[in-house]
Structure formats: C-alpha cells, structure tokens
Design a protein around this nucleic acid. Structure first.
Lengths: 341, 341
DNA sequence: TTGTAGGCGTTATCAT
DNA sequence: ATGATAACGCCTACAA
C-alpha cells in the first residue's frame, strides 16, 4: 500500500535523530530505555522493515548465496534442499540458477549472480563445461566459491563431492561377485569429472581382477535416457555382447533397461544392470534396478556449511576437499545369487 | 581481487564528473563522442560493472522475482524452468524458495522475499496452507502477485492454473468408457483447490452418468506414495471393492499400483488406474500408468508472461484467470478395450 | 545518551 | 556538453 516506513519517518515523528533510531532498533547499549521503547513501539506500529538494499550497499554484502546447477533432477534438487536448509539457518538467502546443462547458460548465470552481488557462489558445472574462465572470474572478484558434486580439479576452490571412484568400484565389484564377466559401462560426458571417476573405479576393479578391458564396452554418452537406450541397443547387437552394464546414472539405467527388455533379455539372468543415484524410480520399475546411492541431502548441507565456514573464517580453504562415501543398494536387476555372508 | 571499479573511479581518472560518466555509460545523447569513448575505454579496462544495489536503492526496484513453491517435484521444477526462461529474457532474476509443503516455511519464505525487496512474487501454495494472511501482506505492500498451479480463490490476484475439473472429467470418463463402474478417487488434501477441482470433475462425471457416489470411495490423503499405498490397501479390502482408482497425482498412482499388485490384482483386467501429471515414471513402471498431463513448462512461461505484463501495465489484473487444458494419456493401467474411433 | 556529518554507488534535476 | 547537488535508506565515527 503506502511506502514502507523508514528510519527517517520514525526519527521525525519522535523528534530524534536517525542515528538514535538506528541504534535503538539494533539494541545498542548506549540508548536510553525509554527512547528505545518509544522507537520500538513506533517501528512496530508502522510495520517498519529495514531496507536490505541500503544495508547491503553500505556493508557491501547481500547475505545472498548464488547456486549454479546443471538441472533440477532428483539428486540436485535434494542437494539444493540441503543447501537451502543450512543457508537459511545462517541467515542467507539462496538464489538458484539452472544452466540446463548448457555452457552458455552457465556463463549467463554466473554473470547474473555476479551482477546481483551475491556474497558467494556454489556451483556444480554443466556437462558441456570444458573451460573455466567464468569460474576464474568469480575468484578474481574475490567472491567465495565452493564447488560441489560436479567438480573439476582445474577449479581452485574447496570441493565437496562423492567418492565417485569408490562408487564405480562398488558397482563393478558387485557385478563381478554376481558372476558377470563382461561388464560394459555407460559413462557420461568425457569432460565430466564424475564420469571419469566412476569409470576409473570400474577400470581399477577390472584390472584388479585381472580382466581385460574392452574399449568397445566403454561408451560415453549424455546423461540421458534416450542416448542410453540407443547405446545399449548397440551394445547388445555385438557378436560378443556384454553380460552386464553399469550406467553412471539411473536415467541411463532406465534407458538401458528398456533396450534390454526390448531385446528379450532378462535381468538378472541374462544380463546384469547397476545404475547410480538411487533415485526412487529404481525401486519402481521392473525389475528393480540396483544403484549406487549418494547422500545428496547431506552433501548439500555439508557444502553450505563449508561455504559458511569459509565466509566467516576468511581463510584460504582452496585445498579443502570433502569426500562423501557412496553406498550400493542391491536389487533385482543384478542379484543372481543370494549374497554370501 | 581488488574492489570493483565505480563511476567515481572513472570520473576521477578522467577528470570529469560522475554525472558525465554516468551519462556516457548509458549512451545518453548529450555527451561528446570523444568523452564517451574515453569513458567506455576506461570502463572496459577497469572491468567496470554497475552496482545493482545502488541502482536498486535509487530506483526502488530490484529486477528480482520471488517464486514460492511447495516442492521441486517434476511438475513444479518444470514450471519453474518455464518461469525462469521468460523472466530471464525480460531481465529479471528469479529467486526460488521451497516451502516443503510446510505452512511455516511458506511464511518464512514470504517474509524472506519481502525483505529481499523482490519486485514481485509468484506463488503456488503448500498443501498445509489454509489461511492467507501472509499472502495478503504481499498485496498490502503493493507488490505484484501472481498465483499459479495451486491457487485459491481467497487470494485476490491473477491466477494461472490447469482446468482441474476437466482433468477429473477426462480421467473419469475414460474409466467409465473402459467399462469400470465402481471408481474410487484418491484425492489430495481437502484444503487444496486442485484436489477439490479434480474431485469435482470426478463427481460431475459420475452424476452425469447417473451413478451413485459412494462416500467410501472418496479418500483424502497427502500427495504421498506411502499414504496412497495404505489407502489403496484399505480400499481393496472392502467387501464391495472399487474396480478402478483415479489418483490425483502420479506418485499416488504409484503407491496405489504397488498396493494393487501386492493384492494380486491385475491392471487393467481386474482394476483400472489413472494418475495425474504424466510424469516420466508413468511410462516406466509395469503396467504403464495412464495419466492426465498438464502443460507444466507452458504454464510456467505463461505465468511469468502474465506477471511481467502486470508489472509493466500497472493495471489491476486481479480478475485475470488463465486456464490451461489438460490432456489424457491412456496407457496399460486402464486400457481394457482398444479405443473405438 | 544523543546528534551531526559523511559515505555506500548511482541517477536525476537543475544549473552552467 | 558538462558539473554540482540531492536523493535512495542506512550506519558509524566523531563530536557534543
């Protein structure tokens, strides 16, 4: 309705100076009790709300954190929820920007957030992102930065991430244990650290067991159900087809699963399948899909905590690296034998 | 690194006044070409970025839109994507707050956004929200408001929503057409407009066909897979159990589907099922679940467009009401007979 | 305990 | 074509 009341209004009405009002409002010690009460009462009555812009301009901080993420899928929106929770509690407002897995959008978003004078930025890079000049710009402006989930070692900043290698190991060891010998992997985009790490776990495990690594069994494709579907169809037409597939996301696992069923193969008998993320959907499709879980909510919270610690301590934490452990959930798609204890 | 360059820095270096710099930067007509070039060059060199806080403080607008939503599920995150797209193009930044279906959180978020001096707010209420004082506060502050998706007629503001009655009709007509006679409904929370409207469509259709409405077949429960599962189990133990279930969300449909399968009943033979939202998961479970689609992305875009129109025109649009049409996708869970043309 | 004055970065108005 | 000044709303030395 009418313009918001300001400190000046209160001062004028009470015939005192704005500084006194300001002090009273903030409960400074050096203000007479009755003055303070009068100010408080009037402030209440006028529904006074401090103008954050004015304060931000003065203090040079907005109490806003920018978050850049590639999309709002199950895992990331869970992470955002975690970030939001901690940030809110610490008095920060979160500004979420989706890049839609587009490098261009990521640039725009970075610029937007920088323009908005956020106090800091938390980022998980898009699958298209191969260069990091825009991220450097954040550092150049001396704006606190934390990288999470989709990290990249070229980025000089504290990292919070999953032990993706371990995730790859868990999945692969499990498949081997179940007697699968020819394990293919649908890895994500090549430039993505999470792809490479998960694949590293896969490769390490094969090597450890003295198994030959077949180039044909390693397929890079987007985090996308359709691509995974096509890639799997391809895999299954090979003369010497894989007897198990590890996909580094559940959406890809779904695509793979569709292709497998279409081909008339049964899981886990004819072929094993393990996904990644442990999304709810893995429990709903038939057969259920085994999947490597990452503690997304926890990861969001930890990221925000680290971020806030960095804001407060002002110390260099660029070498900080928090690594969370994944956990394998075994379901029908890969369980041939009841697990030996 | 160092402090951001300001107009004052440029002015001092060039030995001209800040007003001239300001004008040059904004391409006003009344500045000498060479002055402007000098300013531009220096601005470029210093990587000058206007301080949005200062401008916002002066102009009393932040170019930020607050969006309050109950969660980030498939439908809502798609809508947010639509809002974001249009808003970005119009020069607005979007601040998304999730209430987690909690009324308390919704209050906090509203306050946060108001404090952040957003230029306007777009809201979809939580399932707990029964009173709308906080929404009125937005109006009292004279801040443009648009309500979308989960609307409520108590809120005086332009509405963008689905024709939820029609959605209920589509689902129910289809089930009847497939020969189901005893149709139950898992409706959502009672205070939610979308629940009531979808149920209204269901009721209207039954009446239209002269069918008796059984109270026992109308179940209100949260938008939640587990509740739906329990409710369905309950329904199926009735002596005269329903032969079809219409759930007003897909997550509920999933829950129902699990209960149905557990009971050893087959879809669509023994029992029919139709969900709502047309989430990807409906195509992935077995059997596929029929579902009523709402054009979520479109709805987000339209909401943002309406919002921006309102911002620009400054006219009263409180009676504006945009209603989008749903579309039924028929799948295995309810298709007994091939559809007659 | 309170007031004065200057400043945060920018724009708009009025002079020059 | 350019400059001086006030203003947006608040805070903080410093002075009283």
């Amino acid at each position: 309705m009418e313009k918001q009341a300001t400190i000046i209004d209160i001062a004028r009405t009470l015939n005192i100076s704005t500084s006194t009002v300001s002090r009273a409002l903030r409960n400074t010690f050096d203000v007479k009790a009755e003055t303070r009460e009068a100010v408080m009462a009037l402030a209440e009555k006028l529904n006074y709300q401090p103008n954050r812009l004015a304060i931000s301009l003065l203090k040079r901080q907005t109490h806003t954190i920018g978050v850049i993420i590639p999309n709002l899928d199950f895992v990331l929106s869970t992470m955002v929820k975690g970030i939001d929770e901690v940030a809110l509690e610490a008095g920060y407002t979160v500004m979420v920007c989706q890049s839609n897995e587009s490098f261009g959008r990521e640039l725009v978003n970075t610029k937007r957030l920088l323009d908005s004078l956020v106090d800091g930025i938390i980022v998980s890079v898009s699958s298209e992102t191969k260069v990091f000049e825009h991220i450097k710009k954040i550092k150049d402006r001396n704006i606190p930065l934390v990288v999470f989930d989709r990290v990249n070692k070229e980025i000089v900043a504290p990292h919070v991430q999953l032990d993706n290698v371990e995730g790859g190991v868990l999945a692969t060891e499990h498949l081997l244990e179940q007697g699968y010998q020819k394990i293919a992997i649908l890895a994500g985009p090549q430039n993505l650290d999470i792809s490479n790490k998960r694949m590293e776990g896969y490769l390490n495990t094969l090597k450890k067991h003295g198994l030959r690594i077949k180039k044909d069994f390693i397929i890079h494709c987007d985090f996308n159900q359709d691509y995974a579907y096509e890639a799997t169809k391809e895999l299954l037409t090979m003369k010497n087809r894989p007897d198990a597939i590890f996909t580094i996301s559940d959406r890809m696992a779904i695509g793979a699963s569709l292709a497998i069923k279409e081909k008339g193969l049964r899981m886990p008998t004819d072929i094993g399948l393990v996904g990644f993320n442990n999304e709810p959907i893995t429990k709903l499709v038939t057969p259920n899909i085994s999947s490597v879980e990452q503690p997304a909510f926890e990861m969001g919270k930890i990221t925000a905590k680290l971020f806030i610690e960095m804001m407060n301590s002002k110390k260099d934490m660029n070498n900080e690296e928090i690594i969370l452990k994944p956990k394998l959930f075994i379901r029908e798609s890969s369980l041939r034998f009841t697990k030996k204890v």
